[in-house]
Structures are given as structure tokens and as C-alpha cells.
């Protein structure tokens, strides 16, 4: 097969530029492309606009000073509700912010994928989401009832970073978790979509039922990165649960003098193989229990 989109994580991240707008798939501490995020942390990239249903991806990028502006609806690690490094950055005014309702957020991604400059939506009316964001405008229906809506601007991305359970070299992808979240919308909203995957195949051969786990087309995928345990320490259903021990340690680091630097030295300033060894290896990660909600 002529099409081979495989790249190393470093080669994929090397295609990004400072100042870009990056979408990061997943949701909170769930199915985050953390191997790619760690590669950004190792890189000289800076001044990024990050668009994310935020979890530790956003927290770590805040801690490392990579974010100029955050486009978000929340940042949380669920079982640890308050993300410590996001809070530091938010409270100190270190990052610009553009805050949306969760639904407005996916509406903006959708608009970008549809080639629209905005999509109308009721949500946001009456709230400080509008009052605190001068970029946001309303629009009046041209029809008889004349209703007023929020004109949710397209959230166009220079690049999207996603993590999936399985992919092939052509860019076909499978998401096996119970929820595929909004990764398909990130893929459509982006000029270039980089997908990391637990398992990389030459070419997928699927049953019709399994093929339903393919949520977006391969023409949207620019590169595929083989990254086993690449969502760690977040939850990748059904392969492994979130690593609460690690997340607690990361969370605690924010309260220590030089805590991020220590975390960074131990878990970021090493290659991915060493990272996996330090967090207990693929075997331990594979045994991390799936969260029970």
C-alpha cells in the first residue's frame, strides 16, 4: 500500500509551529493524546492557543508555560475535580481565556468543520459567557418570529491531536470506548489531524459491526503515531483506566516548591519508553481498573 502516514511522535510534533491553534481530543481525564502532549512539553513550541474539553493535558501545558490562550468549557480530572496547574494559570492571569458552554464548544467545532463562520445557538444567552467575551455576537433570525441567538464562531484549528485504540497506516481509526466524545468534530475542524494509537496495523480489515467504531474518515488524518499507553495517565476505555496514583502525584506536585520542575524532570524530560518504565510499564497500565461511575 502506497499510503503510509506513520510518523514518530517527535516528527509529528515537529510539524507544528509556535502560535498555532491546537485542538486536543478526549474529555477531561478521558482518552487524551498524552504521548503527543508530552512531546509538546519536550518541544520548544510556545504561545499556543489550546482548544480542549480540558483535563491534565491543559494542566500540564499550563504548567510548562506553553499556552497563550485557552478555549474551554472546563478543566477537571473528575475524581480530582480541581486541576491545580490550570487554576494557578487562571488565577495568576498567565493565560488568556475564551470560555464557552460545553455545547457551544462542540457547536463551534462543528461550524469549523462545515466551513461556516458561525452557527446559531440559543445557549449562552443571559450568561456571562457573552458578557465577558467581546468576540461573541448575537444574530437575529431572518424569519417572522425574529428570535435572537448567539452566533457561535467557528473554532477553526491549525491542528488536532487525538488518541484512538486502533489505527492503520492509511489513517483509518477505531475508537472502542463507550463514548467517542467529539473527536470527529476536532478532526473536521482542523487543517491537519494527528492521531496517536494504541495499536497500529498495516491495514484494518473489519466486520461491519467493528467498522462502526470508525468515527471519521481517513482523508482527515494527516499522520498516525504508534503510541502504546499513549493516553496514560488518562482513561482509555476499554484498554485501561485512569492512573489515579499518578494523577494524585501530579496533583500533589503543584503544592510543592519546584513541584512542576520535579515532575517534568522525572516524567517529561525523558523519552516515551523511559516514561512508560517509570510509571510501571505497559503491563501495569494494562491492569489499571476501568473507572466505575
Amino acid at each position: 500500500m502506497a499510503l503510509d502516514k506513520e510518523l514518530t511522535a517527535a516528527a509529528a510534533i515537529a510539524q507544528l509551529r509556535s502560535g498555532m491553534t491546537l485542538g486536543i481530543g478526549g474529555w477531561g481525564p478521558r482518552r487524551k493524546p498524552m504521548a503527543l502532549v508530552r512531546e509538546i512539553l519536550r518541544s520548544p513550541l510556545k504561545d499556543l492557543t489550546v482548544v480542549s474539553y480540558g483535563g491534565p493535558d491543559v494542566g500540564m501545558l499550563c504548567a510548562a508555560g506553553k499556552i497563550k490562550k485557552l478555549v474551554f468549557a472546563f478543566v477537571t480530572m473528575d475524581a480530582i475535580p480541581l486541576e491545580p496547574y490550570y487554576r494557578k494559570a487562571r488565577e495568576s492571569g498567565a493565560i488568556e481565556i475564551e470560555e464557552y458552554d460545553e455545547g457551544m464548544f462542540q457547536w463551534g467545532l462543528r461550524a469549523a468543520g462545515m466551513g461556516m463562520s458561525f452557527l446559531p445557538i440559543k445557549v449562552g444567552l443571559g450568561t456571562d459567557v457573552l458578557a465577558k467575551n467581546p468576540r461573541l455576537k448575537t444574530v437575529q433570525s431572518p424569519y417572522a418570529e425574529g428570535e435572537v441567538y448567539v452566533a457561535m464562531p467557528a473554532l477553526r484549528l491549525d491542528a488536532a491531536l487525538l488518541h484512538v485504540n486502533e489505527a492503520d497506516r492509511l489513517g483509518n481509526t477505531l475508537i472502542r470506548g463507550a463514548d467517542h466524545f467529539f473527536d470527529h468534530l476536532y478532526a473536521r475542524a482542523a487543517d491537519a489531524c494527528y492521531v496517536s494509537t494504541e495499536q497500529l496495523r498495516e491495514q484494518l480489515t473489519l466486520s461491519p459491526e467493528t467498522a462502526q467504531q470508525n468515527r471519521f474518515e481517513r482523508y482527515l488524518v494527516k499522520a498516525v503515531v504508534h503510541a502504546p499507553c499513549g493516553a496514560h495517565p488518562t482513561y482509555l476505555g476499554p484498554d485501561y483506566g485512569w492512573d489515579m496514583e499518578h494523577l494524585k502525584r501530579y496533583n500533589a506536585s503543584a503544592g510543592e516548591e519546584g513541584g512542576w520542575q520535579k515532575y517534568r524532570d522525572e516524567f517529561v524530560a525523558v523519552d516515551e519508553d523511559s516514561y512508560l518504565a517509570k510509571v510501571g510499564g505497559a503491563e501495569r497500565i494494562g491492569r489499571l481498573k476501568l473507572p466505575v461511575f
Binding site: A73, F74, L82, R90, E99, Y100, D101, M104, L125
Partner: peptide, 14 residues
């Protein structure tokens, strides 16, 4: 420059 950042508006507007 908030005194305390909580989660974000989440889905409350909708």
C-alpha cells in the same frame, strides 16, 4: 484575576 478558579461554566448555560 479570580480569587479562585473552579471548573469553568461547563454545561450550565445550556
Amino acid at each position: 484575576r479570580p480569587k479562585s478558579a473552579i471548573l469553568g461554566v461547563r454545561g450550565l448555560p445550556g
